[in-house]
């Protein structure tokens, strides 16, 4: 009896690992995106979701589909790239950024910031808003990078759904923002467009943390909720990349559930804010 293999059934479990390996290998070989060291349970969930929507009968057909059907591969790539984000996501983090990081940045004549894994740009715009309010934006460059070009294109446009603005305004206020949040964008029916003045010093660039190397020496790195998807070894490798990209005394900001404790670099940073996962590279 042939089991129905386009959805999860316990029958495919014994071969699951080799199916998944063949799928991520096909993506890597043909398109250069490397998911081979991503957490398996996550990758599996995303692949099985795509499988269920694909019309394929059997998961073993997926690698050749990836190799021969670019449109399908592109969809899968979008599935594997998590673009969920918010403006002022975790307001407590942005409050701490204002209180603990801005005073350090203020001491530099020119400030370079790397926002790694910026997705559709909401957090890069949040950063620009804070810097503008603190009078630092004119001497700052924000390098906002992601491997997902579609997300980057959206980030560059700076157009977001109007429905989200209520939540973002609340986040902004909770983060210690004192201005009128609606001054930062122009409403246009169901969308808003972020102000040109916020975009001017953001450089949007395609960069893959897994396969690309250091591209700038910076004062501040934000990489939030990216490392959770990586296996430990890849986490370590990426942390090394961040360490090498920071100046001495530079700041590293991670996601609320990410840390340095299990990396080789833990001793090389001071915790500026333990709860908000803000670290300072030792001199």
């Amino acid at each position: 009896m042939k089991a129905k293999l386009n959805q999860y059934t316990p029958e495919i479990e014994p071969h699951m690992q080799s199916h998944l390996a063949a799928i991520v290998e096909a993506v890597y070989q043909k398109y250069g995106y490397d998911f081979r060291q991503y957490s398996e349970a996550h990758i599996k969930r995303r692949i099985m979701n795509r499988m269920a929507m694909s019309g394929l009968e059997d998961i073993s057909q997926m690698p050749s589909k990836i190799l021969n059907d670019e449109e399908f591969a592109f969809k899968l790539l979008q599935d594997l790239s998590i673009t969920v984000t918010e403006m002022f996501r975790d307001p407590g983090f942005y409050r701490s950024l204002r209180e603990n990081v801005i005073p350090i940045l203020r001491t530099y004549p020119f400030i370079k910031i790397w926002h790694a894994g910026c997705s559709t740009g909401e957090e890069a715009y949040s950063m620009a808003i804070i810097l503008q309010e603190e009078g630092l934006y004119d001497r700052t460059a924000i390098y906002a990078t992601d491997f997902n070009q579609r997300a980057l294109n959206r980030a560059k446009e700076g157009i977001f759904s109007n429905k989200l603005m209520k939540e973002y305004t609340a986040n902004y206020q909770l983060s210690g923002g004192k201005e009128s949040f609606s001054d930062y964008y122009t409403s246009n029916y169901d969308h808003v467009i972020m102000n040109q003045s916020l975009k001017k010093n953001i450089v949007w660039a395609n960069h893959n943390l897994v396969t690309d190397s250091v591209f700038a020496e910076v004062h501040l790195i934000l990489c939030r909720n990216v490392l959770i998807y990586f296996e430990r070894e890849l986490q370590n490798k990426t942390q090394k990349l961040f360490y090498d990209s920071l100046i001495n005394g530079g700041i590293l900001c991670l996601g609320a559930k990410e840390g340095l404790r299990f990396t080789d670099l833990y001793e090389k940073y001071i915790e500026l804010d333990k709860k908000q996962r803000i670290f300072k590279k030792k001199y």
Partner: peptide
């Protein structure tokens, strides 16, 4: 499970967190 994250269990009986939809 922490607020605002999905909690998954890996084959090696460790946790993964994600923020997908």
């Amino acid at each position: 499970a922490p607020a605002n994250y999905h909690l998954l269990i890996e084959k090696n009986k460790t946790f993964s967190l994600t923020i997908d939809e």
